[in-house]
Design a protein around this nucleic acid. Sequence first.
DNA 1: CTGAAAGCGCTTACAG
DNA 2: CTGAAAGCGCTTACAG
Lengths: 355, 355
Amino acid sequence: MSPPVRRLAQPHDAPDDKKGATHPTSVPTMLDVALAAGVSTATVSRVLNGSGVVSDAMRDRGMAATNELGFQLNSIAQGLRKGHSNTVALLVGDIEQTHFSAMTKQVQGYLESIGLDLLLFNVGHSSARLEHFLRRVVSMRLRGVIVALSDKLSDTVIDMLVKLPEHGVVVVAIGQNLSEHKIASVVQSEREATIASIRYLIEHGRKRIAYLGKSKGSAVGTERYEGYKEALSAAGMYDPALVWDVSYRYSAGREAIERAYQKGLALDAVQTGSDERAVGAMAALHDSNVHIPDDVAIIGFGDIERGAYVRPALTTVSNHPADVGVHVSQLFNSTLSAKASLLVIQRSLVRRESA
Amino acid sequence: MSPPVRRLAQPHDAPDDKKGATHPTSVPTMLDVALAAGVSTATVSRVLNGSGVVSDAMRDRGMAATNELGFQLNSIAQGLRKGHSNTVALLVGDIEQTHFSAMTKQVQGYLESIGLDLLLFNVGHSSARLEHFLRRVVSMRLRGVIVALSDKLSDTVIDMLVKLPEHGVVVVAIGQNLSEHKIASVVQSEREATIASIRYLIEHGRKRIAYLGKSKGSAVGTERYEGYKEALSAAGMYDPALVWDVSYRYSAGREAIERAYQKGLALDAVQTGSDERAVGAMAALHDSNVHIPDDVAIIGFGDIERGAYVRPALTTVSNHPADVGVHVSQLFNSTLSAKASLLVIQRSLVRRESA
DNA sequence: CTGAAAGCGCTTACAG
DNA sequence: CTGAAAGCGCTTACAG
């Protein structure tokens, strides 16, 4: 029953280091708790992890000493021993975009609820940085990787992703369908929703419908563009001259419209791939004294809230970052049992004044 | 010169585990590299860390084996041995707000550039969750904690923060001045900028200037409110009836204006504490056929880009998330040498049509 | 310049 | 039900 090992005094055990904080103040270890409680570290470990069988007496002593010393399990040592950390990486295209930040919030909340931490990596458009990070995943003993990238993934990246589960890393994709690579994915109905949006414009008599968004490079953008093209082609109204491949920003929306008018292009509707572009386009139309929606109808893509407060209020294709967060948690659990699946969230048209 | 230790075959060394991925495929360890290179692990470690002195021959052999096996240092083991991880936590008030997400992006980029990872924790308004996380910081062996919270911090939280450096954790505050607690801080000139903004309105003949933002609870919001109050009091124009303590959202802006008009309150200018509130207020004014800026002037607070695309374009007090990111990096470095300091970023009035 | 050995702080068969 | 001991994968005095 006597303490198993006597630890010798260490240099940093000195009560007060007057030389400034060069040597961090020491923190109690499990051995300190065991010593104080008069039990073994094995018992302390069992008590704290609720594992194995421990008598009430031992449990009480262990808990008492733990609280007294304010002991916290060192998660690094724990990670080394268990073979994995308690963190999941979220690889996000651009945290500045509302969709991504809203999703990040959901995902962090979910992970926290199951005791995991979130490592955030903002990828931007650099494939090199992405690959560099991916190479480190296994050696960091990450529990999982959630990939929320709108850029099309290179084969190299997909290969790296595919191999992660072999090392016990759970992989979930958001925004692009990687289920054919056995990677659980949650996507939104980009194509179908765009088709419905364009049909709506056609039904309301629009003849010259422009597209303002990514048509290549972006996995998500391409889906939308293809929906646009399909719906217009079916109606015999597709005109490549009305397609602009532009960034998601406000300025891109405004500039595209300005260029169109300089060229004397006629149009009576604009489908954009983001609310930012839509608002930028509306500003340009407003400044050219074009009436919305009488002269030109506008439909955005994205955040439900924001568009409600511009005037005229923006009709938009709904976005569901919160739902994405919820579904990620489902996939995250089911992937733990190695079943790759696909979850599709339905977007829908939110009608307001602009179209 | 012969390998120092012979590792016996382990169960998971079996070439292919047919039973499904229950046992993660093994990853080479430093010992594997040492064995393959015919050197000691000490040498491999020195080669990979660029520490100590190593002969060219040893270096070549170490590197060759490392590349051949695709070896990556296990960062958990490294962390346990070195006594710290390579990660810094960012505690953020609400990642959905553009200011925070823009800042997060900067901070992550900076940390990455010095080889550190970013752990993201979205605090919301829960002091309990914040404290719980803070309690784990030392046991996670975090390198640093960056606190970007607009809510006023409780004494408990400040105490916890203050003690972190004793354990080798760098602490930096964003948005509130904690320098009196020896915590390096970067803030923006909330008070001064609001004073300047209100003076501008007064100089342009506005008499009934409302305030629409947080006046308590939020550290940042309170600073702004106090600037508002000071400027108006100095002019003998302060009227508490024109102050609304509302959330930062669009809807809060709209509803506040709607309520004001229901009450028959007269006003000819609105200073808001965020662009969201400003845009919400503009929508309400527009819907009531109130002309901006002739009848009512509006000034927002925040993102420079967004307001440029609403109509009329929004006059706003500038926000500098990117600068904050840059300054955090400076403080992060200087705090490593234990000097607490305060950095103030100047906000300024960006004049556009709304005021 | 190089290696053998100790040790970071846990968890978990194993033995009793 | 409990403890002694091994070991996760590194780094770093220490000795040569």
